[in-house]
Design a protein around this nucleic acid. Structure first.
Length: 272
DNA sequence: CCAAGCACCTGACGGC
DNA sequence: TGCCGTCAGGTGCTTG
């Protein structure tokens, strides 16, 4: 579900309320396929104090005292919400009960997501993060353009490739390609340096705007307070196949690129 | 090394 | 109503 803006909004929200809180107990609601075994996770977390919450790529990291970081990946439908105590519901996976009687919950309809406890050394050695490329908001468009243009496959697929640049998923790939006027099937190495730089400056703009609007809620995404985002109201192409382009009224089309549906304007987005 | 395709899982929606 | 196919914000594994 969440791409960079959504995970960033969740991390900022949690970082505003969680630091200083201590985990009083952990309810193992349902860890099926979701985590390291409860018998190793639960003792590690109980009694720890939360220091800070941050994001790297699409991963949410809750740093605690005594060399433990809780690592969440939300994949398509994961939710991490901090709120009042409540009863477990159908898709809840794990409950962390905090010392102010609040609740940090992880829910996940499709069960693709996970949570693990890692030491700093384990985090550093974690292959997922080791393979990740640079952060798009902390890297110049020129550097990102150079990385993209070394690839021969479709530009859409390259944007989704987390070893090239992290944090971009199907929504923000389609939206940034539209804003840059680039057809999703264009070979990455055939995009001029100038256009590739423009693509990443548009990507940065769209990511920042999405963060400012609390992320995009299609189905499942909510922020750390359980509230939906608003950036879906600003989509130009994502999920809008057969609608009219807001710029030129041409009917938007969709194609499969790298196995993902890609919606684009056949007039505004060109291959060169 | 790279790229494509399927797998993981549940739910929502459209067609018949 | 219900059954069936298709699709969904991500990533990992296998294959070529």
């Amino acid at each position: 579900m969440p791409e960079l803006p959504e995970v960033e909004v969740i991390a900022r929200g949690l970082n505003a309320t969680l630091p200083g809180r201590t985990v009083v107990s952990v309810d193992h609601v349902d860890l099926t396929r979701l985590s390291e075994p409860a018998e190793t996770l639960l003792p590690k977390v109980t009694g720890r104090k939360i220091r800070r919450v941050y994001r790297r790529a699409k991963v949410l990291l809750v740093e605690m005292n005594d060399d433990l970081t809780l690592v969440f990946h939300l994949k398509m439908t994961g939710r991490v919400v901090h709120g009042p105590r409540r009863e477990p519901e159908k898709h809840d996976r794990i409950f962390l009960r905090l010392d102010d009687d609040s609740l940090l919950s992880f829910a996940d309809v499709r069960k693709f997501g996970f949570v693990k406890g890692m030491t700093a050394d384990e985090l550093k050695a974690w292959s997922f993060l080791a393979k990740c490329g640079p952060e798009p908001l902390e890297t110049s468009p020129e550097v990102l353009a150079d990385r993209l243009r070394r690839r021969k496959s479709a530009v859409k697929g390259v944007l989704l490739n987390q070893s090239v640049v992290v944090g971009v998923g199907n929504i923000y790939a389609d939206e940034s390609l539209f804003r840059a006027g680039i057809h999703p099937e264009t070979r990455a190495d055939m995009v001029s340096q100038k256009r590739a730089v423009f693509l990443f400056s548009e990507l940065q703009a769209v990511l920042k705007q999405a963060i400012a609007e609390n992320g995009s809620s299609i189905r499942d995404y909510v922020n750390a307070d359980g509230d939906a985002g608003a950036f879906q109201n600003n989509f130009n192409v994502y999920g809008k196949v057969n609608e009219q382009c807001a710029q030129c009224q041409t009917t938007l089309k969709s194609v499969k690129v790298s196995g993902r549906t890609s919606t684009f304007c056949p007039k505004c987005q060109t291959k060169r």
